[in-house]
């Protein structure tokens, strides 16, 4: 078997795989949207009407009629669903019941803040996790052993507590950043630390377990028999295979980052998606909530899609073009 035909077959297989995963991702997002729509529809008490009819809200009859017509609330449910879906597909997320502003605009206002926070938190988590893992494998035992306890420690401290402690020390006592100026670089950094620490624990846990596992593999001993030292063994041999599963873990921690950002934003007084959700829940602003659920689904699906697409590129062992019978017989 020549390697060129092999490689081009592998590339075709990857293309098929990517298309398939992309289609699945789109389907998952649409289904998530349909699901939230149905859940809201079957909820008793028709929250939309509740809001519209609330005397405090002072909607005029014309306004009510306009909104009812816009959402097609006078139509059968499946017509409503089709309309909502067709609006969703072109990016129209509806209008907030509270502020009468387009939901997409409301989201666009708060999304950058949350993305900055979550992205910074992921960076903090990764740096911290790799630093701990490096220390565990390369420091002398008296230092490395206590370092192994760090992930469980990080995991057991709730992130709002870390946030409060960070604010107490670095803002109130050391005056490094102002709580009022929540979007400043340092304030964002400390918020990201608060959010990133528990996430780093999960990544570090997996990384250390993998490093220990890889270090016990025969190839590690054989590499040492070629004269490699501890540090070279770590960087050249152990790090890559141990980091591959981290891709999957990172994709899974996105949910944690999104959920945690709600709490962290409150503590650090940031105006992000969490803040918007909090207000919308309190006021039953359903179009906003539905848009946020859809957004969460999109983020989750996209991150996992990226992870699935990247993994086969990083790990040469993943074969997408193998028929099961062939691998079984030939490799036997």
């Amino acid at each position: 078997m020549s390697s060129t035909t092999n490689r081009s077959a592998a590339r075709r297989a990857y293309g098929r795989y990517a298309v398939r995963r992309l289609a699945q991702a789109v389907a998952v997002v649409l289904l998530a949207y349909v699901f939230t729509f149905l859940v809201i529809s079957v909820l008793p008490g028709d929250p939309v009407s509740n809001v519209l009819r609330d005397p405090q809200n002072n909607f005029s009859e014309q306004e009510i009629a306009r909104i009812v017509a816009y959402y097609g609330l006078d139509q059968p449910i499946w017509v409503q669903l089709v309309e909502a879906l067709s609006r969703f597909v072109v990016g129209d997320l509806g209008v907030s019941l509270r502020s009468n502003l387009p939901v997409s605009g409301l989201l666009a206002d708060v999304l950058p803040s949350t993305l900055r926070l979550a992205g910074a938190a992921l960076a903090v988590a990764l740096v911290l996790a790799f630093a701990i893992a490096f220390g565990v494998r390369n420091l002398p035992a008296p230092l490395a052993r206590p370092l192994r306890a760090f992930p469980s420690l990080f995991l057991s401290v709730p992130n709002f507590l870390i946030g409060l402690v960070l604010i107490q020390w670095f803002s109130f006592q050391l005056g490094l950043f102002l709580v009022i100026d929540a979007e400043s670089l340092l304030a964002t950094f400390f918020a990201a630390v608060a959010l990133g620490i528990p996430v780093s624990a999960q990544i570090a846990e997996v990384l250390i377990a993998n490093l220990d596992h890889e270090a016990r593999q025969e190839y590690a001993a054989v590499a040492r028999s070629r004269g490699l030292g501890r540090a070279r063994l770590f960087t050249a041999h152990l790090l890559k295979p141990s980091s591959l599963p981290v891709v999957t873990v990172v994709a899974l921690t996105v949910g944690e980052l999104l959920g945690g950002s709600l709490i962290t934003e409150t503590i650090f007084g940031r105006n992000g998606v969490g803040n918007l959700v909090q207000r919308s829940v309190a006021t039953q602003d359903l179009p906003v909530l539905q848009a946020v659920v859809a957004l969460a689904a999109v983020v989750f699906v996209v991150v996992n899609l990226v992870a699935d697409l990247v993994y086969p590129l990083l790990d040469p062992r993943v074969r997408l073009d193998a028929s099961p019978a062939r691998t079984k017989e030939v490799s036997a």
């Binding site: 025969e218 190839y219 054989v222 590499a223 028999s225 070629r226 004269g227 050249a236 790990d315």
Partner: peptide
């Protein structure tokens, strides 16, 4: 360490497990 590989070479038992699979 300078002797390993350079002066004493090693051929392992299970070739399938003795090379780093991702390099």
């Amino acid at each position: 360490r300078p002797l390993r590989g350079r002066s004493i070479g090693f051929v392992p038992q299970d070739p399938g497990a003795s090379l780093n699979p991702v390099r």
